[in-house]
Write a protein that binds this DNA or RNA. Structure first.
Length: 872
DNA sequence: ACGGTCACG
DNA sequence: ACGTACGTGACCGTC
């Protein structure tokens, strides 16, 4: 049995993979579809054929001997897209990891190397199998050489031999070049003879055998016109044939042994992990010779840790830190804001991790480094370090990197940013997590991870062009957020208690009424029991169902209103119950006994779009929309020594951002003239002058504007405003007719998302959209709406984050006592001293409006009150 | 732990 | 044909 020598046309297969596969990226946004497709093809090939020798050829250089013959050769080829060219180095890495020899030579195409090598392989006694997507290779076929062609996609291949070529093209493999000489090839820009296509060329070659023979017997060709064409273009035909002919006599000096291949399991695993080829990772072992299996790597053994116990030891550590000017550290923080403690600090020194438990002799020296401006600090979750600083009156200085924040910007949709996952993701190292009970042991693992993660995370940030956002916005913002959290907001506890009693009485009243209407007592808070009462007992008509039974939400109840007196009672009960349990009782539990203030946590690494979130308690969803709810805001008051709450909110920031990024003429004009945007939209959509817009029209236009920001669909809009889907569709159509810039933006952003696999905000914040090319309609549609919404919502988040920095910076620079208390997405709430009121109102407005220059102005409304409800 | 509901931008 | 508006967090009852 003869041995097989596989020769792969690398350039061809990589191109094929790139165009056949949907966009695929690593979570950090690196394109991998071509590498992935190429690698699967390669693995399948090695698996199916089990060749005895393998070589891969790549094209090299733009000019070849063919461009010297004919300057326009391949002239119409489009430039390789960047998304593809950036994958070639990765392909090289894959090939190297497989231990396969690469052949490329300046001035030659891969085809020439392949042809030459195929001849040599035949000479060495192999059966050569050329793998390519390029039909030109068919000319190389002979008794010892076959060609494997990609069919459609990347998974199917056809093996072609002499017979197959004859059957398909009606000529022998050698005659393929004659065929091409006559008919030309549009993709390579080979001219051929005008007026001759595939059919005629086939007939002529079948009849005359070769172009040369044909030229000698033009008079025998049937048809006057055809004869004339051939006669006038003999040189072109000969040139075209030359261009189409693969050079099989290149000088290639290689020994047959060169082409034995030898996969390196460790490198392949490392590479596939880095490229996030999870499926392929599992198949690596099957490729390897037996006995090279290390699949179950044990967790990393942490370096031995020095525990500092004496002042001298602390001095040694501190002096090393001072000498190097920087330290990676992890503070083991305990307690709750505003009273944080350290269990200890673990640092990474040249000797490895060292741990100092709180209050060891010399402890203050370590702590003093936190404030030292000359010492750079790297840590994980710097906000907690800043909060510790606030609780101890230490100003933390010169923090240069936070691995948690970095990981968030790289992957804002991750559920968590824990060391073990990050180590696995960025370094392919399995960190065995110690028991959290021992702060020293926990700290050792943490600091090891920080030390290891810092370089790759920094590199990934700059690769993804996230470094400016990171260093200019997120990292400094952590300091501002810690100040805001540590400051807290004062809540009037006595007033709260009174309100709670008042609400309790009303709830009790409503409850009794509900029981009477129902004819029995039941748990009104149980949707299950309530459903039975309403729909089984009272026999109201169920309008909506949930997975588990009847829906009883407000929308359903509104529809049933008027049909039974119980409904109104239920709606009011629900409202008051929500307000009391979540806002009155919920908040009350979180008022700090000493400060009398509520210290929420502003989460900086939670949302997919770049917004903050607030928890324990959530102060970003304090009621305002209902009169009853708004009363909750009366409870938020300035603390002792401050006099007013000032609320400054951006007016229509999302639509202004849309105007900026879409450059829509109508939308821009509306904001330049500071028109009421919903009225203007109504006028456009309904085709009436602005003075003629009714309340109903305006409210529908408002819903359309919301829809545009959310990623519009006729279904969603119809549901929201209660018109037919068809009518909603017509609104959208007429909106897009008037706002063509918006339409164009939406189309563009979705198209870009499909191609890139992610979307970005004005400041470069990124969100990957893995489902954007999904074959599942729901997943894909969701990703498309996300593609439309995220740049808008995310840019708004960028802007207010930067505004917060500017406001905080300005207040500090002017040594004002007034301070930021809350951020509610498009609003800042401040606590202001009476003597600073005018100045601060002006300063906050200016800072927020001027923090970024868009093509439309940003407008901020500033409101003042003795409590949050008054500041409206 | 999860689904339903509802509070906010 | 598919069947949702985007982004959050807290509380309640149920399992």
């Amino acid at each position: 049995m003869s041995r097989t020598f596989v020769i792969i046309d690398g350039s061809s297969l990589v191109h094929r993979a790139f165009y056949a596969l949907p966009v695929l990226t690593t979570t950090s946004g690196r394109y991998t579809n071509a590498v992935y497709g190429f690698t699967t093809m390669l693995m399948k090939l090695l698996d199916d054929i089990k060749p005895d020798a393998v070589a891969i050829a790549f094209d090299k250089g733009r000019t070849t001997f063919r461009t010297e013959l004919y300057a326009d050769y391949k002239a119409h080829r489009k430039a390789t897209p960047a998304e593809l060219s950036e994958q070639f180095p990765l392909v090289q890495e894959v090939v190297q990891a497989f231990g396969i020899t690469v052949l490329e030579k300046e001035g030659f195409e891969g085809d020439d190397i392949i042809g030459t090598l195929a001849q040599k392989a035949a000479g060495w006694g192999y059966e050569a199998l050329i793998v390519t997507g390029d039909r030109d290779a068919l000319q190389l076929i002979d008794a010892k050489v076959k060609v494997m062609l990609t069919k459609k996609g990347i998974s199917e291949m056809d093996v072609m031999d002499c017979k197959a070529v004859q059957a398909k093209y009606g000529v022998t493999p050698k005659q393929i070049i004659d065929l091409k000489g006559l008919m030309g090839d549009a993709s390579d820009n080979i001219p051929g003879v005008p007026g001759i296509g595939e059919k005629t060329a086939g007939k002529l070659i079948a009849q005359f055998g070769s172009i040369e023979n044909l030229i000698n017997h033009i008079e025998q060709v049937a048809g006057k016109k055809l004869q004339e064409n051939l006669y006038n273009h003999t040189e072109l035909a000969i040139l075209s044939k030359k261009l189409a002919t693969i050079d099989c006599a290149m000088e290639l000096d290689f020994l047959p042994e060169t082409f034995c291949y030898n996969p390196d399991g460790t490198r392949l695993r490392e590479l596939f992990t880095r490229l996030e080829f999870k499926g392929l990772l599992m198949r690596v072992n099957a490729l390897l010779p037996q006995g090279d299996c290390e699949a179950d790597k044990p967790g990393i053994c942490l370096p031995p840790m020095t525990v500092l116990t004496a002042e001298e030891a602390v001095d040694g550590a501190v002096s090393e830190i001072i000498r190097t000017g920087s330290v990676e550290l992890y503070p083991v923080v305990t307690g709750r804001i505003p009273e944080l403690q350290l269990a200890g600090i673990v640092c990474w020194l040249s000797a490895g991790p060292v741990y100092a438990a709180a209050n060891v002799p010399g402890w203050e020296k370590i702590v003093s480094l936190l404030a030292d401006s000359a010492t750079k600090k790297v840590t994980h979750d710097v906000k907690s370090l800043y909060n510790y600083g606030w609780s101890k009156g230490i100003k933390i200085n010169n923090v240069v990197f936070d691995t948690m924040l970095a990981a968030y910007l790289l992957e804002p949709t991750a559920a968590e940013y824990q060391f073990d996952r990050l180590m696995d993701k960025y370094l392919q190292k399995q960190l065995t997590w110690p028991a959290v009970t021992d702060p020293a042991e926990y700290g050792a693992a943490a600091i090891f991870a920080i030390h290891e993660l810092y370089p790759p995370l920094g590199e990934c940030l700059s690769q993804s062009e996230l470094d400016t956002l990171y260093f200019q916005v997120e990292l400094p913002l952590a300091g501002v957020l810690a100040a805001v959290e540590s400051t807290g907001i004062k809540v009037d506890a006595a007033h709260l208690k009174a309100m709670s009693g008042e609400f309790a009485a009303k709830i009790e009243e409503l409850l009794q009424a509900i029981y009477i209407h129902a004819g029995e007592q039941f748990n009104v808070n149980s949707t299950k029991q309530l459903g039975q009462i309403l729909f089984d007992k009272i026999k109201l008509k169920a309008v909506k169902k949930t997975k588990t039974g009847y829906s009883t939400d407000a929308e359903v109840l509104e529809k049933l209103a008027g049909q039974h007196p119980i409904i109104d009672k239920l709606l009011e009960y629900r409202l008051l119950m929500k307000l009391k349990s979540t806002y009155l009782d919920g908040l009350s539990a979180l008022i700090h006994p000493v400060t009398g203030r509520i210290h929420t946590t502003f989460n900086q690494t939670v949302t997919a779009t770049g917004r903050l979130s607030s928890s324990d308690p959530n102060l970003q969803n304090i009621p305002i929309r209902t009169e009853m709810g708004r009363r909750i805001r009366e409870l938020f008051v300035p603390g002792d020594g401050w006099d007013y709450l000032v609320a400054a909110d951006y007016s229509q920031i999302e639509l202004r951002i849309l105007a900026h990024i879409s450059q829509d003429r109508n939308l821009t004009e509306a904001f330049l003239h500071n028109q009421d945007i919903h009225t203007r939209t109504a006028a456009e959509v309904f085709g009436v002058p602005m003075e003629m817009v009714t309340g109903e029209m305006r409210s529908r236009a408002k819903a359309v504007n919301f829809g545009i920001v959310y990623g519009i669909s006729d279904y969603g809009l119809s549901r929201d405003i209660g018109v037919s889907r068809k009518e909603a569709g017509e609104y959208i159509q007429s909106y897009f007719a008037k706002y063509q810039g918006v339409k164009n933006y939406i189309d563009t952003v979705v198209r870009e998302a499909r191609h890139q696999g992610y979307v970005t905000t004005l400041f470069g914040r990124r969100r990957n959209l893995p489902d954007i090319n999904s074959s599942n309609f729901n997943q894909r549609s969701f990703a498309e709406r996300t593609a439309m919404n995220t740049p808008i919502q995310g840019t708004a988040a960028d802007i207010i984050k930067k505004a917060m920095l500017d406001v905080a910076q300005t207040l500090a620079a002017q040594k004002l006592r007034s301070r930021i208390l809350l951020q509610v997405h498009d609003e800042l709430v401040l606590e202001v001293a009476a003597e600073e009121l005018a100045l601060v109102s002006e300063l906050v407005k200016t800072a927020m409006e001027q923090t970024v220059q868009l093509t439309v102005p940003l407008l901020v409304d500033v409101k003042v009150g003795r409590n949050w409800a008054e500041a409206k």
